[in-house]
Amino acid sequence: MSWDSKLIDRAKEIIELYPQKRSALGPLLYLAQEKEGYIDDDSVVEISKLIGITEVQVRSVASFYTMYKQEPSGKYLLSVCKSISCEINNSREVIDNIKEFTGLANNETDIESTFTFEEVECIGACGGAPAVQVNYETVEGVTPPKALELCKYLKEEVPEVIVADDLQDKFGGIKSFDWAIEDNSGTSSTAPGFQIIGTSEEK
């Protein structure tokens, strides 16, 4: 779908932040990710017009980074860390459980578009290994049984806004550090929740 005037205005505000238009490319790709769950062809066209680079240039950047999805993602993107601290703290069993629950292999999306599952590299939660992200909101100390509960919860309750602190309370365990500050913010799409992009939401 092409972009409506509201989205284009948001894009223009973002472009204004930078000395050169092209710097806004990353944030604008997140707008597409939010809207469609992936970087769709129409968005590539819109972005190339807004920034003044070719569509191929937009694609070339989009395909470089793992957080821009080239195919539609499910409502919940489950990313499980498999890097060293998680690997030696049993992340493989977390991965196996999630795969079994969802029936998905790495980088697959289910037919109902509920889940996309991916194995990822370190997400900076190594003290809270094994660590998982749901739509880029971090949950730490996720044991294999808790991972199953997390999946069940998402599937059955279908929460609109994903908030890290909320999931941590319900399904997390040991943390990298005391989070201390109460937080209600999160995201309702597979784009990371961030004010500037316009993707952050309060619960």
Partner: peptide, 18 residues
């Protein structure tokens, strides 16, 4: 003019900083 380049997976820290 300064930029804080925060990794995308640090959405929550980025919100705090913003």
């Amino acid at each position: 003019k300064a930029f804080i380049y925060i990794r995308g997976e640090y959405a929550k820290p980025a919100r705090r900083v913003q």
